[in-house]
Design a binder for these strands. Structure first.
Length: 574
DNA sequence: CGTAACGTGGTGAGG
DNA sequence: TCCTCACCACGT
């Protein structure tokens, strides 16, 4: 907590800055404000379960990044040159150097103010990105509980199964080779076993992007499945290898004393999304993996996600993330946020009607019904999946060939499906066109929070590069706007928690359209109601924009991240 | 000449 | 079709 109305905190801050000045140059640690906050937390052992959002410290690096988000924030010198400031050589004295740098920075901030102001981004900078720094610093200090036991157990079981699969693969290939090497695998599959020759004449296997060789991807291996045991063994091996190396051993290497923290990067994604690393907590597998384990005998109940059946074990990597005793994990998830933003941006009457109708339980079913002229009851699961794919593909500007391979139909059918979709929702097509036209005229596109991304290739001679820029500029409007809203949601949630000091809850991670909190069991109902109402509130985006569509939030709760269930009790009176 | 350090390509996890 | 990060093999 760093409440600045508190006199002793003011003193602490002053003392902290003086220490910084004495011991180091701002070029090394001073210009990333999040790191300054973290150093402050550390030095004074501050509890950051809730942070004070009224404290505003502008970060020049983030401001510069907003001007051109494809350019990642690098070093201090680069910042200076971005702001067309002189890159003077550091003075001999440390304090002098810091003072000179501070003068440069304040000069830079003035320029930044002008540049952001005339691009209408000052509000985005101060009210969203700058406030978010406080939240991220808090999240980065909060430790998440990890079940070391589950982790070690998974690791050893996976290791056993991997060696067994490796032996099988070597036997099937006729000799030993490195299963992880695409190069060696390619040789075995296509030069020694010639598995591609078994395919019916017209079938073409996917090629690698740069070297144009036959791919060894999951898609290709699946196609080769009927002709030889090796592809099947490899698919299983790959799955387990990924699980073990990245999500079990990888996580383990980030764990300290059964607690884990991640690093949050505000400026690495050009669309404005957050990213996390070491570990990348936004890419932990969501669905459990089923493996056949011949050699293991499980003690049932000892590990909750390793359930013994007929030698079948279920692994869920998210089960290693747990809550502390008497606390639970709570996740709040925006439902179909990108699709709903498309509805808002396109202003398509049919889309708006579907989104506003709260009696429609599943949006993709309703969309499929609209699109195919069926009753909602007649829409099959396949119809729903197809509709979902078409919608997102059209949003991101897919080609008809790619769509055909996605839907496993002919290119003509894919073309017809796209055409009928665009006919049904003409505003979508119109939005795409006007987006590209705007970009051609001004060289950038904008999100609903006025975030910008530049697309210099939008007028490129090369058609492929130009087409890519066209897809990107449309994608940015949608994905970037979703990122804006998710960031705003984090601020509002943090703010709501901080203003209710007796509530025991803390924001731990963000997975793009979802936030994960740790909440004391006694406060679960209260926090659930609070978070839901804050995220669904029309005031979420403040005065920036009012959405033409509601974005419902679903709440679920559990003792581990892998076992989350909808919370039955609802609470709106807090 | 062996090894370390780094970059690149392929693959796959999430959204 | 867009955007990330992590791991592995392999070349320099």
């Amino acid at each position: 907590m760093f409440n600045m109305t508190n006199q002793s905190n003011k003193e602490k801050l002053r003392e902290f800055w003086l220490t910084l000045m004495r011991c180091d140059s701002i070029r090394k640690i001073g210009f990333q404000i999040k790191d300054v906050y973290l150093a402050l937390f550390e030095k004074y052992n501050i509890n950051s379960d809730k942070v004070d959002l009224t404290w505003t410290v502008l970060d020049v690096g983030i401001g510069v990044w907003l001007l051109d988000p494809d350019q990642p924030v690098s070093d201090f010198e680069h910042l200076l040159s971005s702001l067309q400031l002189p890159q003077q050589t550091p003075n001999k004295s440390c304090v002098d150097a810091l003072e000179a740098d501070m003068i440069l920075l304040s000069e830079g901030m003035k320029k930044l103010f002008q540049m952001l102001q005339c691009k209408d981004m000052w509000n985005l900078f101060v009210c969203l990105e700058t406030k978010l720094v406080n939240v991220l610093a808090g999240m980065e200090r909060r430790e998440m509980s990890i079940s070391i036991h589950t982790l070690l157990h998974f690791s050893s079981v996976l290791k056993r199964n991997l060696t067994s699969l490796e032996e099988k693969a070597h036997k099937a290939a006729g000799h030993a080779f490195l299963l992880n090497s695409h190069h060696q695998l390619r040789q075995v599959l296509f030069e020694e076993l010639k598995l591609d020759s078994y395919l019916p004449g017209k079938t073409k296997l996917a090629k690698t992007n740069v070297t144009r060789e036959i791919s060894t991807s999951e898609t290709v291996l699946t196609q080769l499945l009927p002709f030889h045991p090796l592809p099947g063994i490899l698919l299983e091996y790959r799955q387990l290898q990924k699980l073990k190396s990245t999500y079990i051993d990888g996580i383990l290497s980030c764990v300290n004393d059964s607690y884990l923290t991640t690093h949050w990067d505000q400026t690495s994604a050009a669309t404005g999304r957050l990213s996390s690393h070491h570990p990348n907590i936004q890419a932990i597998p969501k669905l459990p993996v089923t493996i056949k384990d011949h050699q293991t005998n499980f003690i049932v109940g000892k590990v909750n996600s390793a359930v013994e059946g007929d030698n079948v074990v279920q692994f869920n990597a998210r089960d290693v993330f747990i809550s502390r005793p008497d606390w639970s994990l709570l996740s709040a998830d925006f439902q179909q946020i990108e699709l709903r933003i498309l509805g808002h941006l396109t202003n398509d009457p049919i889309l708006l009607k579907i989104f506003s109708d709260k009696t429609v339980p599943d949006i993709f079913n309703a969309l499929a019904a609209q699109w195919m002229g069926k009753c909602v009851e007649d829409v099959s699961e396949a119809d729903r999946e197809q509709t979902k794919r078409v919608v997102y593909s059209v949003m991101y500007g897919i080609g008809k060939e790619k769509l055909a391979s996605y839907l496993k139909c002919t290119t003509d059918t894919a073309k017809a499906i796209m055409a009928s979709f665009l006919l049904k929702f003409p505003a979508v097509n119109q939005f795409t066109k006007s987006c590209v036209e705007f970009c051609e005229k001004y060289g950038y596109t904008r999100t609903i929070f006025k975030r910008r991304r530049l697309f210099p290739n939008i007028t490129h001679r090369n058609g492929a590069l130009r087409a890519q820029a066209e897809r990107q500029c449309v994608n940015f409007c949608v994905q970037g706007s979703a990122a804006d809203i998710c960031k705003a949601a984090m601020l509002q949630v943090e703010n709501a928690l901080a203003s209710n000091r007796d509530i025991k809850a803390r924001l731990l991670v963000q997975i793009h359209d979802e936030v994960l909190l740790e909440v004391a069991d006694s406060d679960l109902n209260t926090v659930s109601g609070l978070v839901k109402s804050v995220m669904e509130s029309e005031k979420l985006c403040g005065s920036v924009v009012s959405l033409r569509v509601p974005i419902p939030v679903s709440i679920s709760v559990g003792k581990t991240w892998g076992q989350m269930h909808p919370l039955s009790a609802t609470c709106n009176n807090s």
